[in-house]
């Protein structure tokens, strides 16, 4: 049996184990008044529900990922050789991230690309937090209802425009002969146009803008439920404004902050469009490498391996930060 066929067996085994566990639990806590699943829903609907959910989780969520995991442990082969004697399990794809295949030297190009991607994503996350926290606080606590509604509208409407169009319009604004440079030169701030795209300013701006709302809403929700009296109590006890935020608002909103930061970081590290349209010519975004493996080199195995490396690094970093700030994973998805 090939390793790829094995992929299809794992979910069946897992489902069987869960089914057995459910049966076991049912037998142990037998409640005679409890109606069975099929009694409640009827046979036809009951089967339909199970079939639909099973199909969705299995074929649209579980199997594709599992397939990619297995794929990442295979060599790149032309279709004819797949399943043949050369189709062995190997960690060569993962190795190739660290060591260049032919020269056996350290693969600085890809490692630094990953590092750069993670670094930019962290900066974008921090930037978004700095932009969104005051806004969210204003909207949730101090703003008048009318103004908050208007502000909310201003925040949401740009997202009706699709991502590519948004990225391109930013590019137009930031280009050498774009509006911003023209204004700067007209004001006399600079004589030669600033290369916003080349120095990666565009990348930061584009990514921050793309995921602004993803940070905004968890923050807003978290701060909104904070009792105003808590803020006033701290103020009344003599706390200056920054202490109120440090001691009262931020600890209270921590789950929301963690949730927003996690999402912005993950989405930013995995984004494709904004870095491609707004990044400088000298920078290499990690997902662009993955994209090229899949669609330019048809090396799915290596693309899959790189994807999982990115995923693992991101998850590890997020867990580390959650740990550091003493937030449990459960709190972030409240």
């Amino acid at each position: 049996m090939s390793s790829r066929a094995f992929v299809f067996i794992i979910p069946i085994i897992v489902i069987a184990i869960f089914w057995a566990m459910a049966k076991f639990e049912y037998r142990n806590n037998n409640d005679p008044t409890r109606k069975g699943y099929f009694e409640r829903n009827g046979k036809v609907l009951g089967i339909a529900f199970i079939a639909l959910v099973a199909f969705w989780t299995l074929f649209l969520v579980g199997l594709p990922y599992l397939y990619m995991v297995v794929e990442s442990f295979h060599p790149q082969l032309p279709p004819i050789k797949r399943g043949g004697p050369d189709d062995i399990l190997t960690i060569a794809q993962y190795q190739s991230f660290l060591l260049s295949k032919h020269t056996d030297s350290i693969n600085w190009l890809h490692i630094s690309s990953l590092g750069f991607t993670i670094f930019v994503s962290i900066v974008v996350t921090a930037l978004n937090f700095c932009i969104c926290y005051p806004l969210a606080y204003y909207m949730a606590q101090t703003g008048a209802t009318q103004k908050v509604r208007l502000l909310m509208l201003c925040l949401i409407v740009p997202y009706w425009v699709n991502e590519i169009l948004r990225a391109f319009s930013l590019r137009l604004l930031l280009a050498s002969k774009g509006l911003i440079n023209q204004i700067l030169m007209w004001v006399g701030f600079t004589d030669v146009p600033i290369d916003f795209l080349g120095n990666n300013t565009g990348l930061y701006v584009g990514l921050s803008y793309a995921y602004l709302l993803v940070m905004m809403f968890p923050l807003y929700n978290a701060i909104e439920s904070l009792d105003k009296n808590q803020i006033e109590a701290a103020r009344d006890l003599g706390a200056p404004w920054w202490r109120i935020h440090k001691d009262v608002v931020i600890p209270y909103a921590k789950p929301g902050i963690a949730s927003g930061c996690t999402m912005v970081f993950m989405l930013s590290a995995g984004s494709l469009a904004a870095p491609q349209f707004l990044g400088g010519p000298r920078m290499l975004w990690f997902t662009a490498i993955i994209y090229d493996f899949f669609f330019q080199n048809f090396n799915w195995a290596r693309g899959a391996a790189y994807s999982f490396i990115l995923l693992a690094v991101c998850i590890a970093l997020v867990m580390l930060l959650l740990r550091l700030f003493k937030v449990s994973l459960g709190e972030t998805i409240r």
């Binding site: 808590q230 006033e232 109590a233 701290a234 103020r235 006890l237 003599g238 706390a239 009262v248």
Partner: peptide, 20 residues
């Protein structure tokens, strides 16, 4: 003179103790 600078202390209707 702001509330944090006045020689007063306020007890709120809902007390507003810091839950954390």
């Amino acid at each position: 003179i702001g509330p944090n600078k006045r020689p007063t202390a306020l007890i709120f209707q809902n007390l507003a103790l810091f839950p954390l």
